[in-house]
């Protein structure tokens, strides 16, 4: 397979600047990255390293205070920066979707869940009738494990818990089965049950579909559960990229080493020197 057939999203030598007080500052520097078809690629790094900016650029978002100074972003062979607004809109939701960090804030407060699904489905398939729209929305909501999907359609976002709102946001992103799903810290700030549910669903999806995912997170432990490959981002650059196990077990870059060392464990490890020899175990890494 050629590289183009292999890769769904290709970022080549991308440099992105932000304007702050009249001056342009680079937040992404000469960054190259590819998301392969059918893979889950993790993108890890501390907050402020440019992860969210990269996710936004990959979605083709344009902002006045931001410019793509160099490089290109190609989605399935299409250069996103050359697309007109209408063409970009045809990709969004259908082939390219985002699951945001704060699902609750991403749902319009004045609209019922049923309307959010209906308009999203209808934006690209105008011929669907009401019953079909409702059936499809119910199917999506039960897929993400939301209790009482039928009742949920008539309710407003604020009538759900934070975890349920996140599931609804995920269902909305999935409802057109996009080719590439970008997840921007989708489990950060969620309770353990919601986090588990979302991770399990993503793993199931990956087995049942050819959907590619870019999973952006600062949480290596979560990424290690589902990603095939992982890219480590630091100060606007990718410092390391490779198979999950390789990067976690044999980190090469000093920043990756620091990040791996900071993976939280279930309990604080006791000082080995104080333990009897039989309980002394080598350092474990969940991989």
């Amino acid at each position: 397979m050629t590289a183009a057939a292999h890769d769904l999203m290709t970022v080549a030598s991308l440099t992105v600047d932000y304007r702050q007080q009249g001056q342009w500052h680079s937040v992404i520097r000469d960054l190259s990255l590819a998301v392969r078809r059918g893979e889950i690629l993790g993108l890890a790094g501390e907050s402020g390293c440019g992860k969210s900016t990269l996710a936004s650029v990959l979605l083709g978002e344009r902002r006045g205070e931001r410019r793509l100074r160099a490089g290109s972003v190609q989605f399935d062979g299409i250069d996103l920066s050359t697309l007109r607004a209408r063409e970009l809109r045809r990709l969004r939701g259908v082939r390219l979707a985002l699951v945001p960090q704060n699902g609750g804030a991403s749902l319009t407060p004045t609209l019922r869940i049923g309307s959010l699904f209906a308009e999203t489905l209808r934006a690209h398939r105008p011929h669907m009738n009401k019953a079909e729209l409702a059936a499809e929305a119910r199917r999506q909501l039960s897929q993400v494990g939301l209790p009482d999907p039928t009742g949920a359609l008539a309710r407003f976002p604020h009538q759900f818990s934070g975890g349920q709102q996140q599931r609804i946001a995920l269902a909305l992103a999935l409802c057109r089965m996009p080719d590439l799903l970008i997840l921007d810290e989708p489990t950060t700030g969620q309770d353990a049950m919601t986090r588990r549910g979302i991770i399990d669903l993503l793993i199931r999806l990956r087995l049942s579909s050819r959907m590619s995912m870019l999973y952006v997170s600062h949480d290596l432990a979560t990424l290690s559960e589902i990603c095939d490959r992982i890219a480590i981002m630091h100060a606007g650059e990718i410092v390391e990229i490779g198979q999950m196990e390789d990067v976690l077990l044999r980190p090469r870059h000093p920043y990756t080493r620091a990040l791996v060392a900071s993976i939280p464990r279930l309990e604080a490890p006791p000082d080995p020197a104080l333990l009897p020899a039989s309980r002394r175990t080598p350092e474990r890494i969940t991989a």
Binding site: R89, G93, P100, T108, E119, A169, L172
Partner: peptide, 17 residues
């Protein structure tokens, strides 16, 4: 500037909507 307006446009809805 809100998340829900951003998401609405990322779901491919028309600017008028």
């Amino acid at each position: 500037k809100s998340d829900y307006v951003r998401m609405a446009s990322l779901r491919g809805l028309s600017p008028l909507r």
